[in-house]
């Protein structure tokens, strides 16, 4: 038995590196603004927009657009669905690591 997960077991919405980073950041904060995420993850506007749109379409994050005075403000939050998906993804990673550890220990 190898230590690999089958491709159909991976949630590719979260698995992509930038989207994983977005979800990881939102998992531990009530909300983050577009600019805060951009700075924290060193992303361009286009990159963050594209990946946040994918997460929003999957129902993993909610995006709220308001105004601060005259300045537009976009804030993002992890949804309940997104939180559960993230937890499943973490469980999958732990499973892969554990399987890898037991493969190494087996004679």
């Amino acid at each position: 038995m190898g230590d690999s997960i089958r491709p159909d077991e991976i949630d590719y919405v979260i698995h992509e590196r930038v989207r994983l980073a977005i979800v990881s950041a939102l998992a531990v904060t009530p909300e983050l603004s577009f600019n805060e995420l951009k700075e924290m993850l060193s992303l361009t506007d286009g990159n963050l927009s594209a990946h946040s749109r994918t997460l929003e379409e999957a129902g993993y994050i909610s995006v709220e657009k308001t105004f601060q005075g005259r300045r537009p403000l976009t804030t993002m939050r992890l949804s309940t669905k997104g939180r559960k998906a993230f937890q499943r993804y973490l469980d999958m990673l732990r499973q892969v690591i554990a399987q890898g550890d037991s493969s190494r220990e087996a004679p």
Binding site: A21, A25, T29, M40, L93
Partner: peptide, 25 residues
């Protein structure tokens, strides 16, 4: 995905969560 990649991903997730958590701290 193999063990090494999973481990690298976990470390990256932890790094980002630590940075984001400064907000809540």
């Amino acid at each position: 995905m193999n063990r090494e990649e999973a481990q690298a991903r976990m470390q990256e997730i932890q790094r980002i969560m630590e940075r984001a958590t400064l907000w809540t701290l």
